[in-house]
Design a protein around this nucleic acid. Structure first.
Length: 573
RNA sequence: GCGCCCGUAGCCCAGUUGGAUAGAGCGUUUGGCUACGAACCAAAAGGUCGGGGGUUCGAAUCCCUCCGGGCGCACCA
């Protein structure tokens, strides 16, 4: 990419200059310590590098250093100017034509780096209890996680997506008890959940179990209240909830490779196994009748109970076994997306891996801030179960594209206010439509280039400027001289297209999805701006061809980016 | 009290890991469709980067401190 190209140019020049003793007292330079940036003011140039940081070791003023380095630059296909400690580069059209050519050649692979250190990554996200429908917060992890998976795959990693089902523990009992009440209601009994706040917490009083109860009664004709078995009911409800969650995820374009059951983990003996291993390594001790893990020896603020006084395991015990199992399955890297409310668990899970002799740095935990639902400008508290807005409702109301985009467009470190009204609106306030509109518009131009049209006023037929075959030829047998025709007017647009490669690299390395959203909005803006001041289909045939090639490049890049976000790229809207 | 996240234009957010005059979008004001989609474009106004110290050639960015908001601090999951 062009950034790397200029960085390489500068670094080569520096090394030569040092060899010739032209950089004062600087005797060495480590590659990668300088950075190519885009000048704030485009008059300076298209790319720039600030060499001021070399001033200290060289003991020369920054402008002098810049001058010395410039002496060694090839200046082929670009020109150079110096302002203070900045070396500014202005690129020539040949480089722009190369950029477009690259897009047309690589197509759906455009944006992928040539070579990376490929890793086998296990990405775990959502991982909810199978005790009810997803709420709006799960939607953020679902959208971000799946987009991150797409991004890392696109970047070149091998990504395995996993959902950890929290199907063991007291909440399943609670689910069974709740369904029992719903089934008894279905059988005509006059029962309800306890009115007392505290007792009510032992149940899930949401309406969503009513249809499950109906289904259970249908499938078990003749069942009576006295024959209801909580264990059977829990299993039934659990299965129903899991099905319901899986269906929703598919519709939300979230595809897991595996659903990993916590219950299976317990039954497999792996939990007991890692417990014994910790014991064998002397990492456990007994206090107040419980077994404690010495996590504070590995950076946690305190030790943690790993087996309760009643002999049962804590959640952490299973989580340790789960993460050990992930590593045993041969992954180079584990990435988890967790809600910020779980941040206290980071230290203890990492501690356990270290205690068992694994590298805790293989586990990356991305903590995401929570989501607030905003209706009519007012924050709606999520805590109250009865007013819960489910993810299902939200998608139904807002649509998959807009819901995903709004979840993806914010930095994970930010609390997200999800404004339903705003997300629904298909106006300027909604960036997802702005981007999709750009794609549709490009497609429209490409259609017009090959379709006959009718003049709405005179009614006469206007012949298409070219055939589909001519358009295909233009793309497949790309002539670099053609694109040079439009390089001047489309310079910022082409540079933006070229930037996609940097955006992918940075986003993948930093595990950020919102940067893709920002990019795609910027690219759409560049296109719309270009569109308003330049006609693509015009009388100058070479110019038209040149701009059509550019349109195809835009369509490819927009599509590649939107595919990562799993937001559709419509040809018409 | 302790830990993590956040505080940048009226609103919502960027800010390329310490660099050039702090930037987009929305909203406001003003212009632009008898040729490719106006769900668009162009322009203007709008800032004590929460406050105060410090580090250095240089700070929205790093350190300290205070203020404000969110989330955690279980032998729950």
């Amino acid at each position: 990419m062009l950034k790397d190209f200029f960085l390489n140019e500068v670094e080569e020049a520096i090394l030569k200059a040092i060899k010739d003793n032209k950089l004062g007292q600087a005797s060495e330079y480590t590659k990668g310590s300088l950075m190519i940036e885009k000048p704030k003011n485009p008059d300076f140039g298209d790319f720039a590098v600030n060499v001021s940081s070399l001033a200290r070791t060289a003991k020369i003023a920054p402008p002098m250093i810049a001058n010395a380095i410039v002496e060694y630059l090839s200046a082929k296909d670009y020109s150079v100017s110096i302002v203070g400690g900045f070396i500014n580069f202005k690129i020539e059209n040949a480089l722009l034509a190369n950029a477009v050519e690259e897009i047309l050649t690589k197509k759906e692979n455009y944006g992928k780096p040539d070579k990376i250190e490929k890793e086998k990554i296990l990405l775990e996200y959502v991982s909810a209890n199978p005790t009810g429908p997803f709420h709006i917060g799960h939607g953020r992890w679902a959208a971000m996680g799946s987009a991150l998976a797409n991004l890392l795959k696109f970047y070149g990693h091998e990504v395995y997506q996993e959902f950890y089902i929290n199907d063991a523990g007291s909440q399943i009992q609670k689910l069974g008890n709740s369904l029992k009440i719903r089934v008894r209601q279905e059988l005509g009994e006059n029962v309800d959940f306890p009115a007392d706040e505290v007792e009510r917490k032992n149940f899930y009083p949401g309406d969503y179990l009513i249809p499950v109860a109906k289904k259970y009664v249908e499938q078990n004709p003749g069942i009576t209240s006295d024959k209801l078995d909580v264990k059977v009911l829990s299993d039934f409800a659990k299965k129903e909830m899991e099905e319901c969650q899986k269906k929703l995820l598919e519709g939300f374009r979230v595809h897991f490779d595996n659903f990993y059951s916590e219950l299976d983990l317990h039954n497999s003996g792996k939990v007991e196994e890692s417990y014994k291993e910790l014991m064998a390594k002397g990492m456990l001790y007994e206090k107040d009748g419980a077994m404690w893990f010495k996590s504070s020896e590995f950076g946690d603020d305190q030790d943690r109970v790993i087996k309760k006084a009643d002999g049962s395991n804590t959640y952490l015990t299973a989580d340790i076994a789960y993460h050990v199992d992930k590593l045993k399955r041969g992954f180079d890297r584990l990435i988890n997306i967790w809600g910020a409310d779980h941040h206290g668990y980071v230290a203890r899970v990492k501690a356990s891996l270290e205690a068992l002799g694994y590298d805790p740095n293989k586990l990356e935990i991305l903590l995401g801030q929570l989501v607030n639902l905003v209706i009519n400008g007012e924050e709606v508290r999520m805590g109250k179960r009865k007013n819960m807005v489910t993810l299902d409702d939200l998608i139904e109301e807002v649509g998959v594209d807009a819901t995903r985009y709004w979840m993806e467009m914010r930095n994970i470190d930010m609390t997200l206010d999800f404004d339903i009204e705003l997300a629904k609106r298909s106006t300027d306030e909604n960036p997802v439509f702005y981007v999709q509109y750009a794609h549709a518009r490009v497609c429209s131009i490409l259609r017009n280039a090959v379709n006959d049209r009718i003049n709405p006023e005179t009614g006469e037929q206007i012949k298409a400027p070219m055939t589909q075959k001519e358009l295909d030829d233009l793309i497949h047998n790309f002539d670099k001289n053609i694109i040079l025709k439009t390089a001047d007017t489309a310079k910022t647009l082409i540079l933006k297209l070229e930037e996609f490669k940097s955006v992918i690299s940075l986003s993948a390395q930093n595990r950020t999805v919102y940067t893709i959203c920002r990019y795609v909005q910027e690219l759409a803006a560049e296109f719309h701006s270009f569109y308003n001041s330049n006609r693509v289909i015009c009388d100058d045939v070479d110019l038209m061809k040149s701009r059509l090639a550019l349109m195809v490049a835009i369509r490819i890049t927009l599509k590649n980016a939107l595919d990562i976000l799993a937001v559709s790229a419509p040809e018409k809207m």
